[in-house]
Amino acid sequence: MRFHHLAGRVWLCPGDPDPEAVQAGVAVVADERGSVMIDAGQSPAHAREIRAALDDAGLPPPRWLVYTHHHWDHVWGAAAWPDVEIVGHVTGADLLRAEAARPWSHRYLRDQVRANPRLAPSFRARALAVDSWEDLAILPPTRTFTDEDELPVGVRLRHVGGAHAPDSTVVLVPDSGVMLLGDCYYPPPAHLRGPDDGPDLALVRRLLDDGYRWYVSSHGEPMTRDEARAAVAAA
């Protein structure tokens, strides 16, 4: 696991390409004034690997941690970043407080899957990702916003919502020409997905902007603006 330079101040650490692992990638906007980490890793163990990769790349430690949305594979590693301000949409804060109150354990996961078998892929991935439930702390954002926000280092946040998660946020780095999409255009999570649900291409079209050359989703390879436009046109 290591960080790769994408453009300008933006570095990426990809997640596991195996979809059954449900491991999102993370990004860092490196800045000597304090870096911005986008998403926290799927577990304390994953976050420790990200921290080691950050050190290996010689990147400045994060001062802010931005949640693209509240789903577990983006936030369960947050406790590994104790000295950061956590920033996220106000809707996600309420959802994460509810998640934090659940009695997470292997037994709880089994009971939930027994009650709703459609949860099995996600909950199986959680069981494999977390090596110690005592280390897990689900942390809501300490700084929230509604429509847009901007951090002191020129990183902009824009709430877009959508079917995948109501708090979905895109992260804009204008000086680097990079837009970090999280999972915003993905269909709903598998246990909530209907037969007609698919990617939200209309949202992607609205987000495409000549001021941004790179578009990065959390579970895919970065795409140039031309590649993104071609993909939308071909769908």
Rank of each mutant, 00 (worst) to 15 (best):
L59M: 12
P60E: 12
P60Q: 10
L65R: 02
L65S: 03
V66G: 00
V66F: 02
T68L: 06
H69V: 05
H70Q: 14
H70S: 12
H71N: 04
H71A: 05
H74N: 11
W76P: 02
G77P: 05
A78Y: 01
A80E: 12
A80C: 09
D83H: 14
D83M: 08
G88E: 00
L96A: 04
A98R: 09
E99V: 11
S105V: 14
H106P: 11
R107L: 06
Y108E: 06
R110K: 13
Q112R: 15
R114F: 12
A115Y: 15
R118P: 03
L119D: 07
L119I: 04
P121N: 14
S122R: 10
R124I: 07
A125G: 04
A127V: 03
L128M: 15
D131Y: 14
S132D: 12
S132E: 14
E134G: 03
P141H: 01
R143Q: 05
T144D: 00
F145C: 00
L151W: 08
G154W: 15
G154F: 15
L157D: 05
G161Y: 07
G161Q: 08
H164A: 08
H164M: 09
P166G: 08
P166Y: 03
D167R: 02
D167F: 00
D167G: 02
T169V: 06
V170W: 13
